[in-house]
Simulated scan of single mutants.
Amino acid sequence: MDRLEFYRETIENVLKKHADIPYSYGEIDEYLIVDRDRNHFLLLDVGWQQKRRVHGCLTHVQIIDGKIWIQRDGIEDGITEELVAAGVPPSDIVLGFQPPEVRPYTGYAIA
């Protein structure tokens, strides 16, 4: 299996585990949206909580130029450590939600 396919499967497996965890309050469903052709992976929340509509992107991950870019990470403990534990080197993970000037201090790739 080549690196791109390994990254696609790893991201999808990590996010699927989170999508399968039911919310403990409200009527909220979580959907895993995968676009393998364009290398986008999203967790989307849809539903109602205390008469308030919930609809938004919880997590957005992309593969850009062979690196995993975490554009948004709304998971409680984050997904970076899960990706590393699954075999993705930190040098191939970019915390895209961090400003470029902060990235050199994160322990992950800068771009």
Rank of each mutant, 00 (worst) to 15 (best):
D2C: 02
L44W: 10
W48Y: 11
I93C: 08
I64F: 15
I11R: 02
R53E: 13
H60G: 07
G96E: 06
Y7F: 15
N13A: 15
W48F: 11
Y7V: 01
I93E: 06
D35A: 01
G87I: 13
A86F: 08
P89V: 06
P104C: 03
S24G: 14
A19G: 09
E82C: 11
D35P: 01
Q98P: 00
F97R: 07
P99A: 13
I63M: 08
R53G: 06
D77M: 12
I11A: 04
G96P: 06
L32C: 12
S24E: 14
D37H: 02
Q49W: 14
K67R: 14
Q62V: 00
E76D: 15
Y7E: 07
I63H: 11
H40M: 03
T59R: 04
L42A: 09
N39R: 11
I110Y: 05
I28T: 10
V34S: 07
G107A: 00
V46T: 12
D77E: 15
I68N: 05
I110V: 15
R72I: 05
Q71A: 10
F41E: 06
E81M: 13
V34M: 08
D35N: 13
W69H: 12
I79P: 02
H55R: 12
D45W: 06
E81D: 15
R53M: 14
I11H: 03
H55N: 13
R38V: 06
R8H: 10
G87D: 12
L95C: 07
T59M: 04
E76P: 03
A86R: 08
G87C: 13
E76G: 07
I21Y: 02
N39L: 12
K16Q: 09
N39M: 12
F41C: 06
Y7N: 02
V88T: 06
Q50I: 05
G78V: 11
H18K: 14
L42H: 09
T106K: 03
I79N: 02
D92T: 10
L58R: 13
E9Y: 02
L15V: 01
I93W: 08
L44F: 11
K67I: 06
E27W: 07
K16G: 00
F97S: 07
P99H: 10
E82W: 08
R36D: 01
I33P: 02
I11T: 04
A85K: 15
L58N: 12
E76V: 13
K17Q: 13
L58Y: 01
K17M: 06
W48E: 15
L43K: 06
A19T: 01
D35I: 01
Q49K: 14
A85M: 14
Y7P: 01
I93P: 04
D73R: 04
C57I: 15
V94T: 07
R103F: 05
L4A: 03
L32W: 06
E9H: 09
T59F: 03
K16W: 01
V102D: 04
K17R: 15
Y108F: 12
Y25V: 14
A111V: 00
G26W: 10
R103I: 05
K67E: 09
Q71F: 04
I64M: 11
Y25A: 14
E5I: 07
H18D: 13
V14M: 00
V84D: 11
G78Y: 08
E76N: 13
